[in-house]
Write a protein that binds this DNA or RNA. Structure first.
Length: 574
DNA sequence: GCCGTTTTCGGCCCGACTGTTTTCAGTCG
């Protein structure tokens, strides 16, 4: 995981340089950091094979950053970074993670109050010292305290999308070993919760000690919390914990059920079992001394007289009663999407071209994507005005007519992610909107309106007859920003009137709508779409997190319009 | 500091919003 650490060093350098208002260099470091973080290969490997020259091939990495990378590979640190850190001995990553706090504020806070950490800042703000600084005031102090509260609450939890690929890789490598007959992730990862506290791995093996050693050889860890013959618990160098347990083959199902949770689900399940005269534990379902089910999870649920409950539903949200009555919804399966209705390209803030995104989507088995770049008001992304949008539409026609796409089922649809202004109007004219296949709308600014005003703003935008989809309806960014205040019931009522489609945005830090809102939408009979919000080719993989979210919201295939063919999907749009 | 040529230095996404000003700096997207 050198890439990640190195990337974080470079982003730190960028922040330190911004303190000094150094022009342009910070962006260069940020670009390099992003490029390094998204590499599929370790920088050491590249360096080993191709030396400095290989490093310079990474986009955004030139001579100087390549040399710093070399220095880091050889010595584990970068002098430039040490120098800057001595000048401003502050936890700049942590402090700037507070919404509204940037490098300049960090500078002033350190200069006047010697604030170095989140805790320092919290104390100072609570003591009313922050408001007295030049250019700070009471409101800023309040915002800082709120921001700290938010950061603190999300500490120690990780985004599903950041951990899932790690877990997938680890499980695959465990299963590759002849020592191990079965390996599977349990816990909140298996339930696909939007954030994960730690990773639970279950294995079966005939040689527990050897398997534990093998597991330790695969994982790079900072600390072992505990180690026995059937369990090991550690902190990875990435900073999260893994619990690995060896289960006995014959009780694997019961163990998997137990360690998948959730705790609340299990408590209720055990109560049901007890009422029927059974006892349920991680070692099986018992009647008296007799073990009656334990091999598979299916056995356990069946023996309790209920339908099998998928892991994503096990949150004690009424799933057990439904399962007993045989009334569980058949939630949407993982392979059921035919299209993706939110895709950004290098026409705005995406990384790849329209054609590259289309090719990748096709490769992933999709039948269509809608290109939905940002519009005018999002100047920072190169947001498109009417003229640029029309040019892009012509470009899409051109690509669609290329033989590769023309002769296949695949189609690129024309769309946009249109900005909803503060007053509920849109930043593209109706005339141009009416020519698009898919019009998505979204809020990107003025997040701190009252609930009433924000709801009215969105409702007004949805009433535009050209509008098809409300993108990331609540605007939250997990661990970064709270959802804005909005009356979801009112939005749903309006959706029923206008036929607007609600989005389940699958990007790991959005997952917006969240599960409880999806459930509301399903109950009201709203239609939804699951979109990746891809900004690069490898982001299509995020769709599975959106599907997981839909499952957690009890959505069925029929509730999700992009399970349909392009033609049928388009017919569903208002 | 990187990039891309105009081959060796100039350009680098920029507008809205906020809270603090009293004309703007900082932050965000």
């Amino acid at each position: 995981m050198t890439n990640k650490k190195l990337a974080s060093l470079f982003s730190n350098i960028a922040l330190y340089l911004e303190i000094d208002s150094v022009p342009f260099k910070p962006q260069a470091y940020v670009r390099a950091a992003n490029a390094i973080e998204s590499l599929s290969e370790g920088v050491e490997k590249i360096y080993e094979r191709e030396g400095l020259r290989g490093l310079e091939q990474i986009p955004g990495v030139g001579k100087s950053i390549a040399e710093k990378t070399e220095e880091y590979i050889k010595t584990g640190e970068i002098q430039e970074h040490e120098k800057l850190r001595k000048k401003f001995p502050v936890d700049i990553q942590e402090l700037t993670s507070i919404e509204g706090v940037g490098p300049k504020m960090v500078r002033d806070l350190y200069k006047h109050l010697k604030i170095k950490t989140l805790d320092d800042l919290e104390k100072a703000a609570k003591a009313g010292k922050v408001r007295k600084l030049p250019n700070f005031g009471e409101k800023t102090e309040q915002n800082i305290l709120q921001g700290i509260d938010f950061v603190k609450r999300s500490k120690g939890r990780w985004l599903l999308g950041n951990i899932y690929p790690y877990q997938e890789d680890l499980v695959a490598r465990l299963e590759d070993s002849p020592l191990i007959t079965r390996a599977v992730a349990a816990g909140s990862i298996r339930r696909m919760k939007e954030t994960i506290g730690d990773v639970d791995i279950l294995i079966t093996t005939s040689k527990p000690e050897k398997a534990v050693e093998y597991f330790l050889s695969l994982v790079s860890y900072e600390k072992i919390w505990g180690k026995g013959s059937t369990k090991v618990s550690l902190r990875t160098t990435e900073g999260f914990d893994i619990d690995m347990r060896v289960l006995r083959q014959e009780v694997f199902g019961a163990g998997l059920q137990y360690f998948t949770g959730s705790k609340e689900h299990n408590v209720r399940l055990r109560t049901r079992a007890a009422n029927k005269g059974y006892k349920l534990s991680e070692y099986g379902l018992f009647r008296g001394e007799k073990r009656i089910a334990c091999k598979t999870e299916q056995d356990v649920y069946k023996a309790l007289g209920m339908e099998y409950i998928e892991p994503e539903l096990r949150e004690d949200q009424g799933e057990i009663d439904c399962a007993l009555e045989g009334k569980l919804p058949s939630v949407i399966p993982y392979d059921s999407l035919k299209g993706d209705l939110q895709v950004q390209t290098n026409w705005t803030d995406g990384k790849d071209s329209i054609e590259a995104m289309a090719k990748e989507a096709k490769k992933q088995g999709l039948e269509y994507i809608a290109i939905t770049d940002h519009t005018r008001d999002l100047a920072m992304t190169g947001g498109m005005d009417e003229k640029k949008l029309l040019a892009q539409m012509r470009e899409i026609d051109k690509i669609n007519s290329k033989s590769e796409f023309r002769n296949s089922k695949f189609k690129i649809l024309k769309g946009a992610e249109v900005n909803i202004r503060k007053d509920g109007t849109l930043d593209i004219t109706d005339e141009v909107l009416s020519r698009l296949d898919v019009v998505g709308i979204a809020v990107h600014s003025s997040f701190k309106m009252t609930k009433k005003d924000m709801t009215a703003r969105i409702v007004k935008a949805m009433r535009n007859p050209n509008v098809d989809i409300l993108f990331h309806p609540t605007g939250r960014l997990i661990h970064k920003r709270e959802a804005y205040e909005v009356d979801m019931d009112e939005i749903i009522r309006e959706v029923k009137k206008t036929g607007t489609i609600l989005e389940i945005n699958a990007f790991p830090d959005r997952l917006d709508l969240k599960d409880s809102n999806i459930k509301k939408a399903v109950e009201a009979g709203c239609k939804m779409t699951i979109d990746s919000d891809a900004h690069a080719q490898d982001h299509f993989g995020c769709l599975k997190y959106g599907i997981a979210q839909a499952k957690r919201g009890w959505a069925e295939k029929k509730d999700i319009i992009n399970t349909l063919s392009a033609e049928k999907m388009l017919a569903m749009l208002p």
